[in-house]
Design a binder for these strands. Structure first.
Length: 598
RNA sequence: GCGCCGGUGGUCCAGUGGUAGGACAGUGGCUUCCCAAGCCACUAGCCCGGGUUCAAUUCCCGGCCGGCGCACCA
């Protein structure tokens, strides 16, 4: 085994074989941007399809596609605008970065230091002789850098309508909640999904496609009634998972907890049943698409690591080169997002929930006689009315007497109770508006692709040389099958092979035809890009007594079986899509001896 | 953003103050009935800008890109 890392081997193969490579290379490149080549684009698309099938279709959820650019108020509401506009100053002594605006707010009477221009912030640091909170070194003279992790743009001409490239796909779902809930016929629970690009102007993109400035997320926002809705936990209760709970991470001898989803929820290791449910189906999904489950875990966020709104949060992590990569996050976000958008926008982000039994409530109401209030209070009449309504709700007893007193703009006004038209009404209330809670499984598609490639990378020693192959799952492999004539100088073999290519493509397979060089070379090419099966047309198959046959070769073991041409599509379909093991073909058909072992 | 290291055909590397060589890959041809075989021919490269110099891929400075460490990852 060579000294280079998995990541380095992978990067080399990815460039050479068209999986992914740094983008815009002809112009020197741009850090943090990658192009997926023909193989990579196909693999990624297959991963997205597999995700869509599991998390949208199988769950009965709704997929949407929102814009990648949204106007500024969206991000004011979501909190991203504040969270991204950090002014950082780095300590010259200890290297620690600190929020410059916070330092100033702590040391002065200034409250919104964040809004100050940078030169002024630098001046304030010098004037007040601010020191590094970590080591006490003086920060005067250090430059203050503005870190805005969102890409900003202008919507339309001019700069009057600022917009931002979304830093996560989630906001697209939250913002459109009022529409989506109509589509869901105003009933909880329901889930909305989105697969799309998100953008973060990372300070320092790293590690190949693991941390980029433009990436693809697959997110599910599960909207639930926190008091009534429960997940179908029993369907995943027996799923075995490797958990790394916060308590174990903090313990000196902390270890993984090997358990089942059901037990973990039961024992409170997983704090919420919905989170448990999604960990369960995610576990099964990752396994199906080819993540090595010996290099996979669910890690709970530490208390300090969680976003302030998240009650419980787990990450799915995969191991590559000894590092754990976050490939998905599962957060219980409560009503945080919808409440914020309710507050900031003109729409209601609530669902009407009917009571089991209609309730009878007594409500204090006022219906002021405006024909009296108008002449009496003039321009203030409207405010007086509002004040009366507010008072009735707050303190019905205030209307006990003959007159009632309200205060408007510091002036006291007295109104006859009769004019206010106060009364207590008995109303039947059949339900209430609630803000749904949100459970958010959020998947990083690029990181998943990276994990699949890293975990699929295999090397076999064959004689003196090394056979490299990607043991990709047939579910996601870019090419389903390679088709070759055993030799290219026999016309019959070429024609039959080309005919099979057409047949297989018509049957929905992604097929590569290759007749160049030796057969071994062609097998190796397909091995290296992870094509699970190769079909070879040879003379023996056309000259036998019985029906014509071809061979099917399995990538990982290089075993071959000879199957009748007429059964080829059906057999390939079974091993490609149906999850039927190749062993089954080996049992039923003749094994073909090959010249060398593999 | 800071520090260290690096950047030569598609990929991986060697090398040089007088513009470059290998391996693998690729293309065409010959050969070839099962695992990167062989033969012939071919394609294809010094990251960008500035400086020093008669001359820079080579030396110097800056940038860009990449790797690692620190910070950042809401």
């Amino acid at each position: 085994m060579s000294m280079e890392t998995e990541g380095e081997r992978l990067a080399e193969l990815a460039k050479r074989r068209g999986y992914f490579f740094g983008a815009s290379g002809a112009y020197g490149g741009a850090a943090g941007f990658y192009t997926f080549g023909p193989q990579g684009a196909s693999l990624k698309s297959n991963v997205e399809d597999a995700w869509r099938d599991r998390f949208t279709v199988q769950e009965g959820n709704f997929e949407i596609e929102a814009p990648t650019i949204m106007p500024e108020p969206v991000f004011e509401a979501s909190g991203h605008l504040d969270g991204f506009d950090d002014m950082l100053v780095e300590c010259p002594e200890c290297g620690e970065s600190h929020r410059a605006d916070h330092l100033i707010e702590d040391a002065t009477a200034i409250e919104e230091a964040e809004t100050l221009p940078i030169p002024e912030v630098e001046a304030l640091i010098a004037d007040h002789e601010l020191q590094c909170p970590t080591c006490g070194a003086h920060l005067a003279g250090e430059s203050v850098d503005d870190f805005n992790l969102m890409f900003e743009t202008n919507i339309g001409p001019g700069s009057s309508t600022p917009g931002y490239l979304r830093p996560e796909t989630a906001q697209g779902i939250f913002v459109e909640f009022p529409r989506i809930k109509e589509y869901a016929r105003n009933s909880l629970p329901f889930g909305a999904t989105q697969i799309g690009r998100a953008y973060r102007n990372e300070i320092s993109p790293r590690k190949s496609i693991v941390r980029t400035r433009e990436f693809t997320q697959a997110e599910l926002e599960q909207f639930v009634d926190p008091e009534r809705d429960e997940p179908a936990l029993e369907s995943v209760a027996d799923v075995a998972v490797t958990l790394y709970p916060a308590a174990e991470q903090e313990a000196d001898d902390g270890d993984y907890v090997e358990t089942t989803v059901g037990a973990a929820v039961e024992e409170g290791i997983i704090g919420d049943a919905w989170i448990g449910y999604f960990l369960g189906i995610a576990q099964e999904w990752y396994e199906r698409i080819g993540v090595d489950m010996d290099r996979f875990r669910f890690r709970q966020h530490l208390a300090g690591e969680r976003a302030h709104y998240a009650a419980d949060c787990w990450d799915a992590e995969s191991e590559v080169d000894g590092d754990w990569i976050e490939i998905a996050g599962f957060a219980y976000r409560g009503d945080y997002d919808l409440s914020k958008h309710s507050e900031y926008s003109d729409d209601e982000f609530t669902i009407f929930r009917q009571f089991d039994e209609p309730k009878t409530v007594e409500t204090a109401v006022v219906e002021p006689d405006m024909s009296v209030l108008g002449p009496e209070f003039g321009g203030a009449a409207g405010d007086v009315k509002s004040a009366l309504e507010a008072l009735a709700e707050r303190d019905p007893d205030a209307f006990e007497g003959k007159t009632v007193t309200v205060e408007v703009d510091g002036e006291t006004h007295e109104v006859d109770v009769d004019v206010a038209n106060f009364r207590v009404e008995t109303q039947t209330v059949s339900g209430e508006h609630i803000t749904p809670h949100v459970i958010e499984p959020s998947f990083g598609v690029d990181r998943t692709v990276y994990t699949l490639l890293a975990h699929a990378y295999e090397e076999d020693d064959v004689g003196d040389e090394t056979r490299t192959y990607l043991s990709l799952s047939p579910d996601v492999a870019p090419t389903d099958v390679g088709v070759f004539p055993l030799v290219s100088n026999v016309e019959r073999l070429v024609e039959r092979a080309e005919g099979l290519v057409d047949d297989l493509r018509e049957s929905g397979f992604s097929v590569v035809y290759d007749d160049s060089g030796s057969i071994g070379r062609r097998y190796r090419r397909q091995d290296e890009v992870g094509t699970p099966f190769c079909v070879t047309v040879d003379r023996d198959g056309l000259e036998g007594d019985g029906p014509d046959t071809v061979t099917i070769r399995e990538r990982d073991t290089a075993r071959q079986v000879r199957v009748p041409v007429d059964d080829l599509v059906a057999e390939l379909r079974a091993v490609e899509r149906g999850g039927q093991p190749f062993d089954d073909l080996v049992d039923r058909y003749d094994l073909v001896e090959s010249g060398t072992d593999a």
